[in-house]
């Protein structure tokens, strides 16, 4: 609660209206592109967004340096970031929910469980529920053989020669380690150890990039054995869940990279004044937690 005087209410600002414009151009351009148009509007929107976000963040940073941000305002930023992350959690929840529903309800029903046997016989005769789903209802009804067959061709652990050659395990190790290193960076900062901070944060960024490389590796492998986004609901859930997670890791890595550059190049962040870094690190822990969910529900139980 406000005991400490004036809360900083910024003057008029051009940033938000251009942010709205940029966002609009981006999505309008994306829709145009998807409906068979070109990239121009999308690219234009992306550029506007990039410029706006750059200046928006620089404005906030310089306001902070100028001492305009009271503790109360900082608390608003903390609430803001916290609930933003919660909204992201709910976004993932929708996709995890879809995975749960498909595995536990949709597939058994399609295969005629309970009182759905007539539907199965008439529409998808021969379809049997399995996970990972290799033969979709459509393929079963048409008598097609699975394109994706046998071990080594889906992402579950049972198919790896040994646990050590199982890529998702390495991904997990990399990401969990990075959560620890970002924590070390934070501790170093709290102890006024700027050098330690830079090193640990740098390592975290490197681990983030390593994770993305491994993930790309895995996708290439998947596509090489015909496990694709449009290969049925297994590919759908697999790529959408891991894909959105990967997109969030990319964003998180980028955020941490920016924080690292700010620290190394501009000497930003003091032990009691490091919200930008902290926000990025919370985000990083969040993508990590989502990964643990993925590891359990998509990979181990996959």
């Amino acid at each position: 609660m406000s005991a400490e005087g004036n809360y900083y209410v910024p003057d008029q600002s051009r940033l938000p209206i251009f942010a709205s414009l940029g966002l609009f151009l981006t999505v309008y351009g994306a829709a145009t592109k998807l409906n068979g148009g070109g990239w121009t509007i999308f690219m234009l929107g992306a550029v506007v967004m990039a410029v706006v976000l750059w200046s928006w963040f620089s404005t906030v940073i310089s306001e902070n340096i100028a001492g305009l941000n009271s503790n109360q305002l900082k608390k608003s930023y903390v609430w803001g970031m916290g609930w933003f992350i919660f909204s992201e959690v709910m976004f993932f929840a929708a996709f995890f929910g879809a995975l749960f529903y498909i595995r536990n309800f949709a597939l058994p029903w399609l295969s005629g469980e309970g009182d759905t046997s007539t539907t199965n016989a008439i529409l998808w005769s021969g379809f049997e529920a399995q996970w990972p789903l290799m033969v979709t209802p459509d393929m079963a009804a048409n008598g097609d053989a699975a394109k994706v067959v046998g071990p080594g061709q889906n992402m579950s652990i049972t198919t790896a020669e040994s646990i050590w050659s199982w890529l998702p395990l390495w991904n997990t190790i990399v990401l969990l380690t990075s959560s620890v290193t970002v924590h070390f960076a934070h501790t170093a900062l709290k102890n006024n150890n700027k050098k330690g901070f830079n090193i640990w944060l740098g390592i975290t960024v490197a681990l983030g990039i390593l994770f993305l490389v491994l993930q790309a590796e895995e996708y290439i492998h998947a596509y090489s054995v015909d496990l694709t986004l449009d290969s049925g609901v297994y590919g759908t859930t697999f790529f959408m869940l891991t894909g959105f997670h990967g997109a969030h890791v990319t964003l998180g890595t980028f955020m941490l990279l920016v924080m690292w550059l700010r620290s190394v190049l501009k000497g930003h962040f003091k032990h009691e004044d490091c919200f930008g870094f902290e926000a990025a690190s919370w985000y990083w822990h969040f993508v990590d937690v989502v990964w643990v969910g993925l590891f359990i529900f998509v990979y181990i139980l996959g």
Binding site: G97, A98, A106, L107, T136, G232, V233, T236, F239, M240
Partner: peptide
């Protein structure tokens, strides 16, 4: 619609009813 996934398409193992739940 655009990338051939089958969330709501029974032919690929999805379910239109999933849409309604979400």
């Amino acid at each position: 619609i655009h990338f051939g996934t089958s969330f709501f398409d029974a032919a690929g193992g999805g379910d239109p009813v999933l849409f309604q739940h979400v």
